[in-house]
Design a protein around this nucleic acid. Structure first.
Lengths: 118, 118
DNA sequence: TTAACTGTTTGACAAGTATCAAACAATTGA
DNA sequence: TCAATTGTTTGATACTTGTCAAACAGTTAA
């Protein structure tokens, strides 16, 4: 079963600065970029490829959740994490996109038609 | 005369995380929002309306400059600060816009940090 | 030259944070 | 029931950071 989420703030209480503090870390920023599709991702430490202890990774997941960026679902003894993409896009328009897009080559960036130049 | 800028990094060396760390502070975020027009602004502490010591404000200006967000110009005994808007928009499309646009209703904002001048 | 002005730099300090390691809790499988 | 699995929590530590206060440096005015 997928049930008791870990506590996360209401989006109405989330301030822009909270979001920025949460992503102002290389590891957490990379996590957000991976989660950008808005789908749930399982979070076994191994698959992320970060060279940090599992407790450190857990600390970062907590920072993202408490910063208002993600939700955590528990399913058996595994957990899943999901970016609150819809809520974030509504309250902070363009922010997640900017975080994901930044640094990519211009050709890889979506244009106004949502289509990539080939 | 307007001349010796303080040292600022080349935009090619600026990482997204540096930018995010620089704006992940209430005072610096507000400064960036004010500077968002890309024009030079004089920086006498009084006009910003923050309730911090002048040396603290100077520290924040330095953080923005070293983070790659701003340039500082010296003119006589006054200084001016300017957001590197064009460069930032090119390298991090939509980011500054998102920071300025994001969140609170315009009415709720002018001083959402509760800080005042001393 | 001397004093006032504008802002930076340095020093000190409290608070926050990224990290590892070990202990812990819940679940699943044998 | 017992052991393995998955991830969190707690404790310790080193590092970073936001802040004030005081000293400093360059410029302008008297």
């Amino acid at each position: 079963m997928t049930s008791p989420e870990f506590p996360a703030p209401e989006m109405s209480e989330v301030q822009l600065v909270d979001i920025l503090r949460a992503v102002a870390d290389p590891i957490r920023l990379e996590i957000v970029r991976v989660l950008a599709d808005g789908e749930p991702h399982s979070k076994p430490g191994d698959e992320w490829g970060f060279d940090v202890h599992k407790s450190t990774l857990s600390h970062h997941f907590k920072a993202l959740r408490e910063g208002g960026l993600t939700l955590t679902f528990v399913s058996g003894r595994t957990h899943a994490i999901q970016l609150r993409r819809r809520e974030l896009d509504e309250k902070f328009p363009g922010l997640i996109d900017a975080l994901v897009t930044a640094g990519q080559s211009p050709a890889a960036r979506p244009n106004s038609f949502g289509v990539r130049i080939r």
